[in-house]
Design a protein around this nucleic acid. Structure first.
Lengths: 127, 127
DNA sequence: CCAAATGTACGACGATTATCGTAATTGACA
DNA sequence: TGTCAATTACGATAATCGTCGTACATTTGG
């Protein structure tokens, strides 16, 4: 069991990881098509990125058929937690609350979202 | 008022920005000393980074005296908001709640912190 | 007034990123 | 079974990052 010390990924890599996390094991073409919805880069770019990510241990793949199938090799929750933690440390002086407040205060977070968060916390408190 | 389109900063730059945000206008030496508490790089490295950040418009400076004084040129709340938003979009499928849940679920977030967040939200709800 | 000491400027270097062109491979099917 | 369209492999390139050595500039204390 290769314990992944610290997960380090760039913005682009995170995008790819997220696609794999939500879509499950996918081909390069599938990932690329998903990416193409928001950005405009060539197929080989995506391919290369995923090959590099494989090298780094961020992805794994099944190469038994012509069209390889890639899978996220890092745990979603763990990766998210680490990213968040890093952000909290470098930008919010280590305070998760400051970060949550910023997230809730932002106009980009909808009222509905805020309401959901409150409910979640209420439930968590009550338990 | 030069509208900063999108604030883009690396991890290192964020560290420097955060120091300036909390300490206020500072000299390179002051920033470097603060940085030295956690990392171990040379003075000129910090200097160069800050010069690059000046170039990029992330910092401004008063060079009227020998020892220049640098100031964060980007708004703290705006920068934090953008970073958060980007993270929410690329890693949490656009859901702030998913992010908050992850942050609260992490064992790195202390009970005390969680309690504070609950209080904050309770107050916000009551109002 | 001049020599340390303290700062800044400049540029270089290796590593990594994002991007892509082109070559090699392979599997399906006519 | 040979061809062709799709896919992967293999660099190459330009940009950015983090790092620092070294040269140049400027105070300031003796």
């Amino acid at each position: 069991m290769s314990k992944q010390q610290t997960i380090k990924a760039t913005e682009s890599e995170l995008e790819i990881l997220n696609i794999l996390w939500t879509e499950g094991p996918s081909t390069v073409r599938a990932v690329h098509e998903k990416l193409a919805e928001t950005k405009d880069t060539g197929y080989t770019t995506t391919l290369k990125q995923m090959q590099v990510m494989l090298e780094k241990g961020l992805l794994s793949r099944d190469a038994s058929t012509k069209t390889h199938v890639y899978t996220a090799a890092v745990n979603k929750e763990q990766a998210q937690g680490q990213m968040l933690q890093r952000m909290i440390e470098t930008m919010f002086n280590g305070s998760a609350m400051q970060m949550v407040m910023q997230a809730l205060g932002s106009h980009k977070t909808s009222k509905a979202e805020q309401e959901l968060i409150r409910e979640y916390l209420a439930k968590k408190t009550k338990k």
